[in-house]
């Protein structure tokens, strides 16, 4: 029986739901607890971001532990920006030792976005090499250098993929590389351009990748029309369909319309072959997640045997 609840839910064939909990820019553990409890029961596991957009925040492992103490299952995000292979492998051991069952491996945003653009970046490994490293540690009990370990970290390995970045055909190749390196689940960049995502999933299914790893489509409620336009124009690696922007621009009650849009998107995503769950990124708007999950008909969440 898998230690990760997320893994068990995916194995059971249920449509999985994960959500994101961004740690605070302080050591306020109560803030993490509050955020977690707000979402309790509305998602199967909770991504804890790792200094997202290169802004210094509470360590993802520490925040993950706070969530775990509350009885919520964290997905620890690990980026390659700030740690070399020594620190990364050490943290993988630490995560497993603390009983956290999920690790999501990412390359990480460049530090020039964040609040310490003068930092020296690391990128000793890239995300694919990190996935491979964690898999080798878990399945072969070996570090990158080849040395063996006594107790292996039993973790469920995730990765991300961005169907909206270029070159488009390479995005599927890259996902394949990640799966071959050891990724078992995939969370995508938030889908705000459904046609491109459909084409991406068609290519994923053609190669049979959807059977080798579980694809969770990212969704994001957008709070305002201005934010939608900003993301459309200025955020690298994002695509926002015009009609989303227009609907938000015309709406009387923008927040209500934003929720409507996400709920409709989830319904469409569930129809796309190969998708096995969603990942809700309600950045700075976590309180809306329960309503989205309810209205999407994904509540209550299934209970797995271990519980």
């Amino acid at each position: 029986m898998a230690r990760s609840k997320l893994e068990r839910i995916l194995q059971s064939g249920s449509f999985a739901v994960t959500a994101e909990v961004g740690p605070p820019k302080s050591c306020n553990a109560a803030f993490v607890r509050k955020k977690g409890n707000l979402l309790r029961g509305y998602a199967d596991a909770f991504n804890v971001t790792d200094n997202q957009t290169a802004i210094v925040r509470m360590s993802s492992i520490a925040a993950g532990i706070v969530l775990q103490q509350e009885g919520l299952e964290p997905v620890i995000q690990m980026t390659c920006r700030d740690r070399n292979r020594i620190a990364l492998q050490s943290d993988v051991l630490g995560v497993a030792a603390l009983g956290i069952p999920n690790i999501l491996c990412l390359t990480g945003d460049h530090q020039s976005f964040g609040n310490h653009p003068e930092a020296k970046n690391v990128f000793d490994l890239d995300s694919i090499q990190l996935i491979h490293t964690v898999r080798t540690m878990r399945d072969e009990g070996r570090f990158i250098c080849g040395e063996e370990m006594k107790v292996r970290p039993d973790v469920f390995i995730g990765c991300v993929e961005n169907p909206f970045a270029d070159p488009f055909p390479f995005r599927v190749t890259r996902l394949k590389k990640k799966i071959e390196a050891g990724a078992q689940f995939v969370q995508t960049q938030c889908v705000l351009e459904m046609e491109r995502f459909r084409r991406f999933m068609e290519m994923v299914c053609e190669q049979g990748l959807h059977e080798r790893a579980a694809v969770l489509a990212g969704v994001m409620p957008i709070k305002s029309a201005r934010m939608a336009r900003y993301m459309q124009k200025n955020v690298a690696g994002m695509m926002v369909a015009d009609d989303i922007c227009e609907r938000l621009e015309k709406a009387q009650d923008v927040q209500e319309e934003a929720i409507n849009i996400v709920v409709e998107q989830i319904a469409q995503i569930r129809e796309i072959p190969g998708v096995r769950g969603i990942h809700i990124m309600a950045v700075a708007w976590e309180e809306v997640v329960p309503e989205i999950v309810r209205r999407a008909g994904l509540y209550p969440r299934p209970v797995t045997e271990i519980e």
Binding site: C80, R81, T107, G108, D109, H110, S112, F113, N121, F123, D126, S127, I128, Q129, V160, E161, N162, F164, A165, D166, P167, F170, T173, R174, K177, Q189, A236, G237, M238
Partner: peptide, 28 residues
């Protein structure tokens, strides 16, 4: 910008690097 070895990261769009529209994505 990240000295990646396995292809472009998710920030590559329209041939440009995520750090700036002035910087070409080497992987592209």
């Amino acid at each position: 910008s990240k000295s990646l070895l396995n292809g472009p990261c998710g920030g590559s769009q329209n041939g440009k690097c995520e750090i700036s529209a002035e910087v070409e994505c080497a992987w592209h």
